[in-house]
Design a protein around this nucleic acid. Structure first.
Lengths: 331, 331
DNA sequence: CTGTTAGCGCCTTCAA
DNA sequence: TTGAAGGCGCTAACAG
């Protein structure tokens, strides 16, 4: 009688029998309809309905060596900054029948390496990381595994494989130049503690020509942390004239704190954010900020990966999407 | 000579040979160390290093019927609302060795059904959806497939399987009661066009006792859309006294527009948002809003799923996490 | 256009 | 504690 095994799931074998064709014909009818006659396809389709069959992508992927999955590593999904990228990526992949597996590195290099190992074990058809991959071991491993990789939000002379981003040094430099042009010399920085923000700071300082007051706050940045950052900067230089913030959230906090201290913007204090969050244009005064097209980064990363999956050779494996300073009321 | 095949990847077979043990012993040394002697484990570990072996979870999962993946369906990853949930979910799953596969339904029922089918084909060990699953076909399918499912951000008398959320009807009702208590009768609603917001609106109207002016905006809601929503509400009732917004982003826009029209809050106009975004407490005036613990929802969903994966029986398959109105300066 | 054969890489079952 | 055999569900490769 019926023993207590798990209710054996319907397989392609059952479908084939129901349709009165061989296993492989059923397989082709579903995955490669061009090779099968209309009539057979119809029979198989009907058999699928009748049996309630669902393909098993694990089994298929094992043989075909295609998982139809792309792994994405972000520092922290809750950082609004990367959302448009993840969204654009997911949208583009979905449209091509691929799904995204998500991993959070928490800005932690060891965690990143561990996560990368896990992801490799899943045999994704591609990997997207935010920022450059830090561990040399991981870099080598990925190259050897031959998995297409896109490093995003940053540029590198020697990416693991492909890269889509912009130069953070140039961003810092551009903002510093912008402040200096306005005649503001007493400048400072409120920044998150991540690698890319640190590089922007380096570019900023290089252009200013000397070190500047800096308040570093832990990720993820928030309005609250911005308020405290301004307090700390004013301790370092009570007459500070301009502040470059590593995110608009932080800038928002700096502005709130500045207003509560009676500082006028831009007269007493100029502020430049980073990211052009949707609220930036609607603040009072509207926030000057650095705009980066995060969605374009995600879309381009998806395109590179999908092209590669389709066997294309990528002519330009490193794509610079650039940035621009959007001048508004705070400068 | 070396033919042109893909560089055959290292398998457990190679590790076993290198270690001088059988295939299955190598397998156990890695996945079930309790069954193997210390010495053998060490030998296998060394062989793993030497060969550069990476397990193939697709192959392992095929036999063991465990994918160590959880599928998560959200309407739109860019909606800040669900971020804490996705983050808490990812964190909890990561810690248990599971990864998240992400899908975006775009608030579209057909898309949701298609995505669910795709996900089923991946044989995830669990599925988390935002909101209730709409398609009856999908509901039946999931039950039959026997995949653990958690429906979140909503509650249901008869969930597909498990549910973690709160009552949107009660939220609408509570906010309406709150406004009425303040003596405000000319009330209205600015809302996104999603299902849950619609239910909150129903609760609101039921308590008010009659239909109210309503401005519906498409997802995802934004500050910009909030501004337009207020304009539309003022056309419907120039003397409107209180507005319930379906998100804090929308509320923010309503406030900006109100200020630009010279309306004072809360004297001329009361506003209540939804979600308690991080900026809500820092607006001017601070925004009254409905607070829901999205992270708790994600954490609880992960717990239910992981418990189930570990064979536990869930005593309470429906968890109400509740909500509360946070009174601030706009009411 | 259809079918047969032979695995993909690993783990479960049974035996030693 | 270790091993041998068999198969998870599917699809390339090669016939017909």
């Amino acid at each position: 009688m019926s023993n207590n095994k798990a209710p054996k799931s319907v397989t392609l074998h059952d479908v084939a029998r129901e349709a009165g064709v061989s296993l492989i014909t059923a397989s082709r009818a579903l995955g490669n309809p061009g090779m099968v006659s209309e009539k057979t396809i119809a029979r198989v389709r009907k058999a699928v309905e009748a049996t309630g069959y669902f393909p098993n992508l694990m089994a298929g992927g094992l043989k075909s060596r295609k998982s139809l999955m792309i792994a994405a590593l972000v520092p922290n999904i809750a950082v609004a900054q990367f959302l448009p990228t993840v969204k654009a990526l997911t949208d583009a992949l979905d449209a091509a029948g691929y799904q995204l597996i998500l991993g959070q590195t928490g800005y932690d290099h060891a965690r990143e390496e561990a996560l990368l190992n896990t992801m490799i074990s899943r045999r994704p058809d591609g990997i997207v990381v935010t920022g450059l991959i830090h561990s040399q071991v991981s870099r080598d491993r990925l190259r050897r595994a031959g998995i297409p990789v896109v490093e995003t939000w940053d540029l590198s002379d020697r990416p693991v494989d492909m890269a889509v981003g912009f130069s953070h040094v140039k961003v810092g430099s551009a903002v510093a130049g912008f402040f200096l042009n306005q005649g503001r010399r007493r400048v400072g920085i409120a920044t998150g503690d991540d690698q890319r923000a640190a590089v922007r700071r380096e570019g900023f300082i290089a252009t200013v020509g000397h070190d500047v007051p800096t308040a570093v706050v832990p990720a993820p940045s928030s309005l609250e942390l911005g308020r405290r950052a301004l307090a700390r900067l004013l301790e370092q230089d009570p007459k500070i004239e301009a502040i470059f913030c590593s995110s608009d959230q932080l800038a928002q906090g700096v502005m709130v704190e500045a207003q509560s201290r009676g500082l006028r913007m831009p007269e007493d204090l100029a502020i430049c954010g980073f990211g052009d969050a949707d609220f930036a244009a609607h603040m009072n005064p509207p926030l000057t900020t650095v705009q980066v097209d995060g969605a374009a980064i995600g879309a381009m990363a998806a395109k590179l990966l999908l092209d590669r999956c389709n066997g294309a050779t990528i002519a330009e494996p490193v794509v610079d999407v650039g940035f621009r300073i959007v001048e508004r009321g705070t400068t």
